[in-house]
Every structure is written in C-alpha cells, then in structure tokens.
Design a protein around this nucleic acid. Sequence first.
DNA 1: TAACCATCCTGTTAGC
DNA 2: TGCTAACAGGATGGTT
Length: 289
Amino acid sequence: MPELPEVEVVRAGLEPAVTGATVASVQVYDERSLRRHPGPSEDFIDRLIDRGMLAPERRGKFMWIPLDSGTEALVLHLGMSGQVLLRDRDTDDLRTRIRIELDSPHHGPLRLNFVDQRIFGSMAIDTLVPTRDAALQLIPIAVAHIARDPLDDRFDDAAFLSRLAKKNTTIKRALLDQTLISGIGNIYADEALWAAKIHYDQPTGALSRPRAKLLLAEVRAVLTKALAEGGTSFDAQYLNVNGQSGYFAHSLNAYGQQGEPCPRCGRPIVRESFMNRGSHFCPWCQRVR
DNA sequence: TAACCATCCTGTTAGC
DNA sequence: TGCTAACAGGATGGTT
C-alpha cells in the first residue's frame, strides 16, 4: 500500500529521468485510470503530448510533474496498487493502464508504464495554483485541500496539535484524515500508534498534549525509517521505478503481526476490524485512557 | 460544518 | 480438484 515513504521513493526515482524530458507519445489502455481527469482520454493525451516535464513534486501520497508552461501538471496517485515503472522502449508490463513515452536528455528514449491492479490510482492533468500558506509554491487544484505531510519543512506542529485537540473523533481516524496530516495510511498509522503506546480508538479530545506530541514524533520516526529502507513491500504490489521491493516489511511491529508476540511485552498482537480495514495493536501496551 | 460510511476495484487465498 | 466468497484499503461524495 503506497503511503508517504513509498510515494517519495517513486518521486525520487522519477526525478533524474523525467526532469527535462519531453513527452513523445501517450497510450491510455484503461480509461478508469483517468477517473480524476476532467475530460476524455483524448483531452488527457492532447494536453500531454510534446510537453516538457519539470522536476516531480509530492504532498502526502499525491505527486505531480509540472509541465513546461508552469501552469499545469501531470498529477499521479498510486491508490492501493499503483506502480510507475521506468523501462526501455521495448519493455511491457502486465496491467499497464497508461503508457507515456519520453525523450530524456540524460537517459534517451524511455517508457513510463503506469501499472495498477485494482485501479484505485489515477493520472490527471490539473491546473497549478499557489498554496494557501506560501504564495511562491504551486500545487494542483485537486491536491490543494490536502494538508502538508509531517516530513515537509513547512509542516506546522503547533497548528496540527491544536486542530487535533479540537476534533471530535478518535485518533486513528484523525491520523488517516489527509486534510489534517497527510501521507499516513493504515500501515504507518498502526506502527506509529504502537510506538507511542496509544490505542487506535482513543478519543482525540482525551489525548493529552504531551502524548499527542509523542505520537507526532513517532509518526515522523516511522516514516523516516521506512523511507530509509525504501518503503514497505509485501509482494509485487509496491515497487520502486526500477521494479524493486522495499525492505521495511521486515521492521513492522504491529501491522500484519496478529498472533505474533508484541516486540515490547511479548503478548500477542490483535487485529480488529475498523473503518473497513484492519487495526493491529497490542491490547496490553495500547489501552484507551 | 463536521463526522461518518458506502463505494470503487481485482488478484489472491481460504474455505467448502 | 474446482468453484465461490472474503479480503486488502485511499479517496471521494453522499448522508446524517
């Protein structure tokens, strides 16, 4: 499941290849991957072909490649199972939904295969607008409502803690709310909550400021460690742009560890159904209080 | 206005 | 052995 570390690995992998490249051709094999594009596939292709690409950017789980006009960008979301694979012009990948062929100044002719098994991911061309908090920074309209992520230099800790305290919900819902803090999905929410010894159903209003600060620190720690290990791969569902897996799955303490001993206290990790997904936690270390 | 939840989607796997 | 149902979850839009 691509969350912030996985998306950042893909963005960083794309950067040297696509920056300065020109779009030579575009093939749309599955229109459903253009769900977020405001128009038919012909419009998507017309607005992309012959355009130059600038350095890719990211906020939370969204990334985008600004186009040479400086007013539009190719927006990508990997959803559950999206992959962006950089290939030579002869390589095909199973379940490629969109193919963009590039002429790169440094890497020559390339093929960018957007592969997506479950089609929760998407591509779109969108207009760039100034961010709310920094006029010189541009962001696609479709991403403007997403909060900055906790690895962003401009992430405002005090504002986050203040908004969190005012929320009338439970802590895991808040961590997954991309308009409050972005980049966290089910895996890293469970991992950060385990590290901070907080139950997923802890009401946000009853969470003390020191514990909220500790949680934010643990969120940063788990995202940073996962990024350093190249992200989390369980199978071929997440791969970097070269088709390689990350190593963070070996470092998971709670997610997917149901029945296994808690690395801290030795009691079994439990999985409960929550928000149409699984929540993994240690009932001893993580109690509602 | 905020919170919540059904929906989209398909390859894999567990169960019968 | 072969079929079916359950499962995985990010973002969105409709409902409460």
